[in-house]
Amino acid sequence: MKKIIFLFSILFLNSCIKTVEIEIPKDKPKQVLNCLFTANDRISASINNSIPILEEDYSIIDNANIILYEDDIEIETLVYDDGVYKSTTHTQYNKVYKIESSVLGFETIIAEDVIPKQPTIINIGFVEWAYYDPNYEGFFGKTSITIEDNGNQTNYFEVLVVRRFYFNDEIITRPTSIEVTSDPVVSNELDVQNYPTHLVFTDKSFNGSTHTITFDFVNHYNEEDSPINYKVIINSISENYYLYKRRLNRHTDFQKGYIGDIFIEPIQMYTNVENGFGIFAGYNEYSQMFYH
């Protein structure tokens, strides 16, 4: 595709093309809320601000007044601590949480979401080094997850494999890259990029039944690192979480400055924050550890 466009551009247009720099009106900055919260945990939210596209410097907002509501009842004001606003309350499954943040000079923002029920996992299969791929000159692991779905509602899921390892005497935790599976449950999610670090999907095609999703993950890292363990994570996620995750990778892919930019429409980022940007979304984790 890019090649075709390139050929057209070079052959027909290049002689006439002129490039000029132009200015655009500056958008008024808005508050940006980032908070992914799970059950039985404290809420940690960060607040910063958007900036006009041609500017570079983000500022830290440390004077926000953030009120947390549970099922529409005000429960506390979050406390700023080392770049993050934290609650003392521990969240609960199936409660609706709402955040209201006020900062001088900005519009007040509001966002709310729920924590879904923990997923019912029947089985998790895990092979650390399943095969060697000479094309990539490295090993791939394999995981299979059997999910029992609740058929009364639309459910959303996220799966990922997190790898913990020693590197230069430090313990590092990183999600692995996933080889995109041909399972239609995942491949029908058109936004799947190559080698994502997570897969999100709905129960649309297995509503109310049991489904096993199998995928491979990249497990060929620097030879000097030393694996400790792996954590296979299956999150039940809210619809807001799903919409945000589904767009995140594609959004960043399509904003790169290659020649095809003019022909490919950008993907707009999802937000559920009223009067502002960012994400406030709940999830509920099921995980299993596998040791090296």
Binding site: N34, V84, T173, E285
Partner: peptide
Amino acid sequence: ITLATSKYNIINTPTSGFTETEWT
């Protein structure tokens, strides 16, 4: 046209299980 006019930072993954350095 669809043109970006602002930008901001958004979280990639839940912070659960990450160290403070990784969080930033």
